[in-house]
Nucleic acid binder design. Structure first.
Lengths: 168, 168
DNA sequence: TAATATTTTCAAAAAATATTGAAAATATCG
DNA sequence: CGATATTTTCAATATTTTTTGAAAATATTA
């Protein structure tokens, strides 16, 4: 396999992996493409490389930027906007975890809180059993939330620490 | 909110959460329904509760069984098959992790291995940079794989240990 | 075994999601 | 500012995924 084949293969696989995690294929492919691109790419280059439309490219690039794993790069003397991906895969994983925690885990914890609180008056067997199950899920969700939170925080501190040292 | 409303709410939320994790909504809803059902339910009861067709119910129940988080229960004197969900949420999480590790992480590791190995002849700057990025991802994937593997194994040992103690 | 109940399969339909492409909006240049 | 380049939006379209429902297969009873 030569370099280009290998790159193609990687982009395809990253796309497939993405879809099974609720990230659309194109978005994952653009991410893969930027991850292995030696330089920042502009919209036209991305469209060309992945054979997708301008609208599609634009939309998914924006979403990657929202996730905090791709950023705009401006080149002096060039009107076009270029894009480059965060290359430190650990940072990428942390950003994704942080986002998913915020978008999915936190809302779930809120819903469970509501469900539980408003139902605690009656105390028949069925209600008790329900509250029991929900409480167990709540406990688990909170543990997961706090574990992830800790991991993310530890990582941010480490990063800040390293950065500060560099400038000290 | 009364018990039934709370149950409805939970089923809906679990369904939404599921979809953002690449699990289809109905599958997640059936799982939620069984999680909070006081007794095992049969196909007709599930169809009725979630307003879905027989085919849909059958398909998604089977998938939940494949994931190892729902099991068939037979009631003496009743021809119908009943279904009940694993109620220990920690066990559920472990099963899901184990499955996803097997279905997604392991194949990704294999692909990366291939991509990397076949490209190591040429050593121009671009190839080197590509191999660098890929290696970083590989390292990360292997760490995640091993961490998850460890977690799952620890849990299985704990379970076996507890179980053995009970019968000793 | 035949009659009946139950489950499974799967082609077709529906619903959800992703993509296109061209018009509108915005930015940049001289 | 006007001309031109670039990006964004979004209704229409295409694709993918999910769901239905009825026929086929399987299981159970007497």
């Amino acid at each position: 396999m030569n370099l280009n084949e290998a790159k193609q293969q990687f982009i395809q696989s990253w796309g497939v992996l993405g879809s099974s995690w609720g990230i659309n294929r194109t978005m994952a492919q653009i991410h893969a493409l930027l991850l292995i691109a030696p330089e920042a790419l502009n919209a036209d280059e991305i469209m060309e490389a992945l054979q997708i439309s301008r609208g599609n490219a634009n939309m998914n690039i924006r979403e990657l930027i929202n996730w905090g794993i791709v950023e705009k790069v401006l080149k002096p003397g060039d009107r076009k906007e270029y894009f480059s991906a965060e290359k430190d895969i650990w940072k990428v994983a942390m950003r994704i975890m942080k986002e998913r925690k915020k978008r999915e885990l936190d809302p779930m914890i809120t819903v469970i809180e509501q469900i539980k609180s408003v139902d605690e008056n009656k105390k028949d067997a069925e209600t008790k059993a329900f509250i029991d199950t929900i409480s167990q899920i709540q406990k688990f969700a909170k543990q997961a939330d706090s574990a992830l939170g800790g991991l993310i925080k530890a990582d941010e501190n480490w990063f800040t620490g390293t950065l500060l040292k560099l400038f000290k």
